[in-house]
């Protein structure tokens, strides 16, 4: 199911969830009801891990594509962390990387032109999906709506289409249905002002 809220702002969950399949977005709404997607989460990510320490959710987590998730009880996670400091450290590291991704997201949406912004977000998605073995080469099935891309980038749907068209025209991507193929990965990274440092991958997928 798409646009299904797994966790809502104000909730006090006793679980955190791990993404098994699909794409999840953290989302916030303005007072006028406009949605901003503030980050993507792919398979292997634990989007609301911070809920383990912050009792009230300050954003929503919604499915952006059909997705499968697994829930983990907070009390079970706490006792695992107490018994295995290395797991606690890995969880800590994971939330620090989430914060790095949010910092990059703010820079992208706030300061980059629409064309660069679009290229950047495609690079990030492809990199993150590659690093967890979800895609081979640089062909990603991203069945995300243009409206959701617009909400992620702070762009109108019409401009999202225009930017995708421009990236195609430049020979950087090819799209068939929801499948995005980075035809010129080096060119797409340049266009997107994309440097993988902020993802802190142990074996950077390139």
């Amino acid at each position: 199911m798409v646009n299904h809220d797994l966790v809502r702002e104000g909730d006090q969950p006793v679980y955190s969830f791990v993404v098994l399949e699909g794409l999840i977005g953290s989302t916030k709404y303005t007072g006028e009801g406009k949605r901003q997607i503030t980050s993507f989460f792919v398979a292997g990510d634990i989007p609301d891990l911070h809920g383990l320490h912050l009792s009230v959710m300050d954003c929503n987590f919604s499915t952006l594509t059909p997705a499968r998730v697994g829930f983990m009880r907070h009390d079970a996670l706490r006792s695992i962390c107490d018994q295995h400091p290395r797991i606690a450290a890995a969880f800590w590291r994971s939330t620090l990387i989430d914060a790095a991704i949010y910092r990059e997201w703010v820079t992208n949406v706030g300061r980059r032109e629409a064309y660069t912004r679009m290229a950047h977000i495609l690079c990030e998605l492809i990199c993150r999906m590659r690093s967890v073995g979800r895609i081979e080469d640089h062909v990603a099935d991203i069945p995300i709506t243009q409206a959701a891309l617009g909400d992620a980038l702070g762009l109108s749907t019409v401009h999202v289409n225009r930017m995708l068209q421009e990236l195609r025209r430049e020979g950087l991507i090819a799209t068939t249905g929801s499948r995005v193929h980075a035809r010129d990965w080096a060119g797409l990274k340049r266009a997107g002002d994309f440097d993988t440092t902020y993802l802190h991958q142990k074996t950077p997928a390139d």
Binding site: T157, V158, N161
Partner: peptide, 24 residues
Amino acid sequence: DEIGVECAGIEEVRRVGFEGLVDL
């Protein structure tokens, strides 16, 4: 535009088009 946008009526077409023009 090779992708297109689903709209409920001409009012929505106008709103969507205007938002596109602002971004453009």
